[in-house]
Protein backbone atom coordinates (compact mmCIF):
# COMPACT_ATOMS: atom_id res chain seq x y z
CA UNK A 1 0.00 0.00 0.00
CA UNK A 2 2.82 2.38 0.86
CA UNK A 3 4.01 2.43 -2.72
CA UNK A 4 0.61 3.78 -3.75
CA UNK A 5 0.85 6.81 -1.52
CA UNK A 6 4.48 7.48 -2.38
CA UNK A 7 3.75 7.55 -6.10
CA UNK A 8 4.11 11.10 -7.53
CA UNK A 9 0.70 10.83 -9.19
CA UNK A 10 -1.14 10.36 -5.89
CA UNK A 11 -0.93 13.92 -4.52
CA UNK A 12 -1.80 15.14 -8.01
CA UNK A 13 -4.83 12.87 -8.00
CA UNK A 14 -5.96 14.27 -4.63
CA UNK A 15 -5.58 17.78 -6.03
CA UNK A 16 -7.71 16.83 -9.04
CA UNK A 17 -10.45 15.42 -6.83
CA UNK A 18 -10.46 18.61 -4.73
CA UNK A 19 -10.53 20.79 -7.87
CA UNK A 20 -13.54 18.79 -9.12
CA UNK A 21 -15.31 19.40 -5.82
CA UNK A 22 -14.49 23.10 -6.07
CA UNK A 23 -15.86 23.32 -9.63
CA UNK A 24 -18.98 21.48 -8.53
CA UNK A 25 -19.53 23.99 -5.72
CA UNK A 26 -18.74 26.95 -7.99
CA UNK A 27 -21.08 25.74 -10.70
CA UNK A 28 -24.00 24.73 -8.49
CA UNK A 29 -24.03 26.62 -5.19
CA UNK A 30 -22.15 29.81 -5.96
CA UNK A 31 -24.18 30.13 -9.13
CA UNK A 32 -27.40 30.49 -7.12
CA UNK A 33 -26.45 33.83 -5.60
CA UNK A 34 -27.91 36.66 -7.59
CA UNK A 35 -25.26 39.35 -7.59
CA UNK A 36 -22.31 37.21 -8.69
CA UNK A 37 -20.38 37.74 -11.88
CA UNK A 38 -21.38 34.70 -13.99
CA UNK A 39 -18.85 35.48 -16.67
CA UNK A 40 -16.04 35.40 -14.14
CA UNK A 41 -17.29 32.12 -12.66
CA UNK A 42 -17.54 30.45 -16.07
CA UNK A 43 -14.07 31.60 -17.05
CA UNK A 44 -12.72 30.28 -13.76
CA UNK A 45 -14.46 26.93 -14.32
CA UNK A 46 -12.93 26.54 -17.77
CA UNK A 47 -9.46 27.51 -16.60
CA UNK A 48 -9.67 25.08 -13.66
CA UNK A 49 -10.72 22.36 -16.10
CA UNK A 50 -7.73 22.94 -18.37
CA UNK A 51 -5.32 23.08 -15.42
CA UNK A 52 -6.74 19.68 -14.45
CA UNK A 53 -6.22 18.50 -18.01
CA UNK A 54 -2.58 19.53 -17.88
CA UNK A 55 -2.05 17.60 -14.65
CA UNK A 56 -3.70 14.52 -16.18
CA UNK A 57 -1.45 14.79 -19.22
CA UNK A 58 1.77 15.36 -17.35
CA UNK A 59 1.37 12.97 -14.41
CA UNK A 60 -1.10 10.31 -15.59
CA UNK A 61 -0.24 10.16 -19.26
CA UNK A 62 3.44 10.67 -18.40
CA UNK A 63 3.90 13.51 -20.85
CA UNK A 64 6.19 15.03 -18.19
CA UNK A 65 9.00 12.69 -19.21
CA UNK A 66 8.13 12.53 -22.91
CA UNK A 67 10.14 14.08 -25.76
CA UNK A 68 9.91 17.83 -26.20
CA UNK A 69 7.75 17.58 -29.34
CA UNK A 70 5.01 15.69 -27.49
CA UNK A 71 5.11 18.05 -24.52
CA UNK A 72 4.80 21.02 -26.86
CA UNK A 73 1.89 19.52 -28.80
CA UNK A 74 -0.02 18.79 -25.59
CA UNK A 75 0.55 22.26 -24.18
CA UNK A 76 -0.39 23.84 -27.50
CA UNK A 77 -3.67 21.90 -27.48
CA UNK A 78 -4.46 23.18 -23.99
CA UNK A 79 -3.64 26.79 -24.83
CA UNK A 80 -5.50 26.86 -28.15
CA UNK A 81 -8.67 25.05 -27.03
CA UNK A 82 -8.86 26.81 -23.65
CA UNK A 83 -8.44 30.29 -25.09
CA UNK A 84 -10.86 29.53 -27.93
CA UNK A 85 -13.58 28.54 -25.43
CA UNK A 86 -12.91 31.47 -23.08
CA UNK A 87 -12.89 33.89 -26.01
CA UNK A 88 -16.01 32.53 -27.74
CA UNK A 89 -18.56 31.77 -25.04
Amino acid sequence: MQTFFRHPATPIWLLLMIATGLSWWLGVDAGREEDLNYHLISTTLIIIAFIKVRFVMRYFMEVRTAPLSLRLICDAWIVVVCSAIVWLF
Binding site: L26, S42, I46, I48, A49, V53, M57, F60, M61
Partner: peptide, 26 residues
Protein backbone atom coordinates in the same frame (compact mmCIF):
# COMPACT_ATOMS: atom_id res chain seq x y z
CA UNK B 1 -0.36 -1.61 -20.87
CA UNK B 2 1.00 1.92 -21.30
CA UNK B 3 -0.83 2.35 -24.60
CA UNK B 4 -4.14 1.26 -23.09
CA UNK B 5 -3.56 3.48 -20.06
CA UNK B 6 -2.86 6.48 -22.30
CA UNK B 7 -6.17 5.94 -24.06
CA UNK B 8 -8.06 5.61 -20.77
CA UNK B 9 -6.54 8.81 -19.41
CA UNK B 10 -7.62 10.61 -22.57
CA UNK B 11 -11.20 9.48 -21.92
CA UNK B 12 -10.89 10.96 -18.42
CA UNK B 13 -9.34 14.16 -19.76
CA UNK B 14 -12.12 14.77 -22.28
CA UNK B 15 -14.76 14.37 -19.59
CA UNK B 16 -12.89 16.85 -17.39
CA UNK B 17 -13.57 19.48 -20.08
CA UNK B 18 -17.07 18.27 -21.04
CA UNK B 19 -18.32 18.44 -17.44
CA UNK B 20 -17.95 22.22 -16.89
CA UNK B 21 -18.71 22.97 -20.54
CA UNK B 22 -22.11 21.23 -20.57
CA UNK B 23 -23.16 21.14 -16.92
CA UNK B 24 -21.64 24.08 -15.09
CA UNK B 25 -20.90 27.12 -17.26
CA UNK B 26 -23.28 29.94 -16.50
Amino acid sequence: VESGATFWHMVDLLWIVLFPLLYLMK
